Amino acid sequence: MKRTTLGRALALPAAAALTFGLVACGSANEPSDSGGNGGGSGLSGTISGAGASSQDAAQQAWRAGFIEANPDVTVNYDPIGSGGGREQFVNGGSDFGGTDAYLDEEELAGANERCGQVVEVPTYVSPIAVIFNVEGVNELNLKPATIAKIFNQQITNWNDPAIAADNPGVQLPDKTITPVNRSDESGTTENFVEYLKATAPQDWPHEVSGDWPVAGGEAAQGTSGVVQAVSGGDGTIGYADASQARELSTAKVGVGGEFVQYSPEAAAKVLEVSERVEGRGDYSFAYDLARDTTEAGTYPIVLVSYGIACANYDDANKAELVKAYFNYMISEEGQQAAAESAGSAPISDALRQQIQPAVDAISSGS
């Protein structure tokens, strides 16, 4: 298992920061309840964050969810990308950050110097679907090695024995496979190839990167481009954020002795079976994702994005606002808002209970 080192996020435009009012999640000094919205807290002021564009739609939903109860609070989020978000946060240029990779050792040291201890919690989980368009084939099972060979162009026909072995009884056409990949540097690509590298290293010898490493397939710009290319072809297969799969068929992927269809529950389960990175402090919940898990019902092709904050702020009001906002983001209500807006997978109650003490630790020494 490897650290996902995403400097970019899903292909969403880096727009100017949007501003919304902040609604309290109960008292800012108390853990949030499952609803995450107690109302009437009397909070006021401004906090600003920056980071992963993959979180942008979710951040808009989270911020919008605070408007009614706390019109005197403003939350800004600039989707400049994960790397820029981590750099701004470590250097004190933002109050909180969003990132598709947990802080590396150098960044962690800088964040701890600023914050005393850094708070680092998963806030956004997005499944990546293997999408396909093959006339006459509506359902497809694919083991990791088969997926790797298809995208590495070692399997080039849909009636290949390896695909047939994964799909007994299915009439597979004698048709050329057209793999479709991202032409732009992409967090979706990096997470997808990290999965291939972890689960089928002999069949996927390429280094993990946000740039697609195999020449000769069909390339398309952005998630929408990949979806359009797969939709417009016959015999096509690609990978895309599951929320954008639309009416396309999606493959079940081999996990242990079964084939698993993506779902919010199956995607979120990855974090429950993954190991927390040790030696990073009590409030860092960074995970080495178990891409090669054999745990039943787990969908391992996911993007996990984190929220980062300080356990100690110089400004007591900033601390109160950041704590309240993070409480809302991880709450059941906040996670459902993100799911409806961005198609993300809500974190489980079990994970919420684990990370709640880290959010509760956000305070001020002043």
Rank of each mutant, 00 (worst) to 15 (best):
G222K: 11
V134P: 06
S249G: 11
P127V: 02
A61T: 05
P300E: 05
G279N: 04
G85R: 12
A268W: 05
L43I: 13
N76S: 09
G279Q: 07
T99K: 09
A219P: 05
N167K: 05
E265L: 07
E120G: 00
Y239K: 09
A361H: 07
E30V: 11
A324I: 02
R114G: 08
I301Q: 07
E113Y: 08
N133R: 11
I301V: 15
T19H: 15
V359L: 09
G187R: 09
Y195I: 02
G232F: 06
T298S: 00
Q88K: 13
Q55M: 15
Q335G: 09
A101Q: 14
H206Q: 15
G136W: 06
G281D: 10
N191T: 10
I80E: 14
V253S: 04
A290R: 07
I131R: 03
G365Y: 12
N76T: 14
W204A: 01
P168W: 00
G83D: 14
T236K: 10
E207F: 06
F96V: 03
L22R: 14
L142Y: 00
I155E: 02
Q261H: 08
I163P: 06
V227K: 01
A24F: 08
E106W: 04
A28D: 10
E30P: 00
C115H: 03
S34N: 13
F285D: 07
E185M: 09
V359A: 04
D72H: 13
A268S: 15
I347K: 08
Q153S: 11
D292I: 00
Y102C: 08
A109E: 13
G110Y: 09
Q117F: 06
E340W: 02
F89P: 10
E333T: 14
A52I: 09
T250Q: 14
G307Y: 10
G81M: 04
E190F: 01
I47L: 11
W62K: 02
I163F: 06
S183M: 02
G235L: 03
F20Q: 10
Y306G: 05
R280W: 07
V170T: 14
V73E: 07
I67N: 15
G281E: 09
N112L: 07
Q88P: 04
Q336E: 12
L196A: 06
T250H: 04
E207L: 08
D166H: 02
Q153V: 10
S126C: 05
Y102N: 11
G256D: 03
R86E: 14
N133G: 07
K2P: 14
A358R: 05
A129H: 12
N191D: 11
T189Q: 13
E320C: 07
V208A: 02
E275N: 13
A339E: 12
S348Q: 01
A162Y: 01
D72L: 13
A316N: 03
G232V: 07
F192H: 09
S209Q: 07
S183P: 03
